[in-house]
């Protein structure tokens, strides 16, 4: 496991996925999910705007966040990111889905950790359109992603394209709702 290499490759990957127009800031230091000390100097108004974070890599402070690298990429890049991390011997710990109702987006968060001794946690996140939540599966790389993605699908309705078995898992077979979506009314 080579921390610098992972960081470099993920940074490049995130840069590839940036929209064509030049970014306003050089390094995408973000705002919305960032509440670190260095950001405190920034205008408070900006924080409250809830602007979705731009693609890019952030080095987070472990003591505050519990993770070392936090990278946001486009949905179609998650397989590439998984390949980079798989080649370095990282393991996929969990897949989380978050519903951002206000932004009209769904977020998929992949938590990677390193089982080889060194402490290194990487978070890969991708935002999807809420009306068209398609994201490629990483099942073929990580067998353990199968159940996690299946659960995320059934709880949030995120469609993992290429998943071998998107069937109901924890919920009853006739459940036609997505309970973790914020607009779910029981």
């Amino acid at each position: 496991m080579d921390r610098a290499k992972i960081k470099r490759e993920l940074e490049n990957l995130a840069a590839e996925g940036l929209p064509a127009e030049p970014p306003q800031e050089e390094t995408p230091v973000e705002v919305q999910t960032e509440a670190e000390g260095e950001d405190k100097a920034k205008p408070k108004a900006k924080k409250d705007e809830d602007v979705p974070r731009k693609n890019g890599l952030i080095e987070t402070e472990y003591a505050k966040r519990g993770t070392h690298l936090d990278v946001q990429i486009n949905p179609d890049q998650v397989v590439k990111a998984a390949e980079i991390l798989d080649a370095e011997g990282m393991t996929l710990e969990m897949v989380t889905g978050v519903d951002w109702l206000k932004e009209g987006q769904l977020e998929v968060i992949y938590d990677y950790s390193y089982p080889g001794g060194q402490l290194f946690r990487v978070v890969v996140r991708a935002r999807l359109d809420r009306n068209n939540p398609d994201i490629p599966t990483v099942c073929h790389l990580y067998g353990g992603a199968n159940w996690h993605e299946r659960e995320t699908w059934e709880m949030l309705g995120i469609n993992f394209v290429g998943h071998p078995q998107l069937e109901h898992f924890l919920l009853p077979e006739d459940a036609d709702f997505y309970p973790l979506r914020k607009d779910f009314k029981p």
Binding site: A35, R65, G66, E93, R121
Partner: peptide, 8 residues
Amino acid sequence: PKGDYHYA
């Protein structure tokens, strides 16, 4: 504060 946190 806003943000996401991880603990293991």
